[in-house]
Design a protein around this nucleic acid. Structure first.
Lengths: 195, 195
DNA sequence: TAATTCCATTGACCTATGTTAAGACTTTGG
DNA sequence: CCAAAGTCTTAACATAGGTCAATGGAATTA
């Protein structure tokens, strides 16, 4: 069943009756994205919140000079969306694009409201998830101002060991907040240091 | 009345009956912090969420080398707390300390649960506030990796024009993610460039 | 399969910020 | 009211990472 991973995920947080599971399956629709296809674009309203079933996506922000900065990747069992845009209808702060063909489970704002009414315990789960995201960005910020690019690279590898197989190098550089040239140089230094 | 600023703040988001106002006044207790006194320490459980009535506080993280990094300041009508620690009971990620004598309205987790039961519309307000915090840290992160210290300094001044009168310079440097020496140099350059 | 675009690497050079150290001025606490 | 601690500035030097340019290989597309 398509929704199995989502059900398993939710059951880490709360207990679900069979009826609850049915409601969840009805609320989330399967969606496919081709490589390079966007879930939503920065500036548009984000009307979909998605749970990644498989594939890889990047969440990025384009600044005023047109430079793109990877805020995060999205891998299976992760959530993607722009919550402020999703709930409040404001323009999305970032874009989300598939880096390879990907399968998602998506929900729209009205349906999510419905879902919360039917399974209020989910509110708590999503609140915790938002808090984790907040903590994660606090950490990214702290790392950006207090660690070297080497350290941030090693941390990323520790957190997502197969990241090199999943996304191209220049996306990793962008995630780290450096240029591809710098990542290249950095990797060489690490290899030489190991010898 | 002590709670007036809080009531006004909340009324920006939702409509309150007189009974609601009374409940809010009963839920939030006035608290005074002397200069240098802590609201809570990194590593402890954060059992208070506070609304700042007056004064100035700093929210900071101490890294493994003992260096302190200012995550944010807290000024009148701002909220401070470590939500994850507050709700989930985990150790606080950061510390909060008064930079001058400050007055707060504080609430404890159990009381906040009670409050949500009595005035459910507050849940929505706090969800929006968390989302704003999340966006704010995404921005801090992006600025940290893509803007120069000059730009970040100018942004801070634009956002909080009187920040120089409120907090010592080395705290501003810490907020910007640079050393006091660098901020000093940077300010001189800006002054010279203006001539 | 050719043509084109994209991607990773390298090198030379540049700049913003860190590092260290010193001195003057201000605030705090006994 | 003095001593001590904290704060701001300046300067000389070091370094991480940016910038620019060139190359070769890989992946897309016609």
């Amino acid at each position: 069943m398509q929704h199995e991973d989502l059900i398993n995920y939710i059951e880490q947080y709360i207990t679900l009756s069979d009826a609850d599971k049915q409601i969840i399956c009805d609320s989330y629709k399967v969606m496919h994205l081709d490589k390079k296809e966007f879930l939503f674009h920065q500036g548009d309203r984000c009307e979909t919140e998605a749970f990644v079933l498989n594939g890889t996506l990047r969440v990025f922000y384009s600044d005023d000079k047109g430079n793109e900065h990877v805020l995060n990747f999205a891998l299976p069992t992760w959530w993607v969306g722009d919550i402020t845009s999703f709930y409040e209808g404001s323009p999305a702060f970032m874009s989300v694009q598939a880096l390879e063909p990907s399968e998602l489970l998506v929900i729209r704002p009205e349906q999510k409201e419905e879902l919360f009414k039917k399974i209020p315990a989910l509110e708590r789960m999503f609140r915790i998830i938002i808090q984790k995201h907040l903590t994660s960005y606090q950490n990214r910020f702290l790392a950006a101002i207090s660690k070297t690019a080497d350290e941030r690279y090693m941390n990323l590898l520790a957190r997502i060991p197969n990241i090199e197989q999943l996304v191209p190098q220049h996306q990793i550089a962008s995630y780290l907040g450096i240029l591809p040239e710098s990542l290249s140089r950095l990797k060489r230094k690490l290899i030489e240091a190991k010898k």
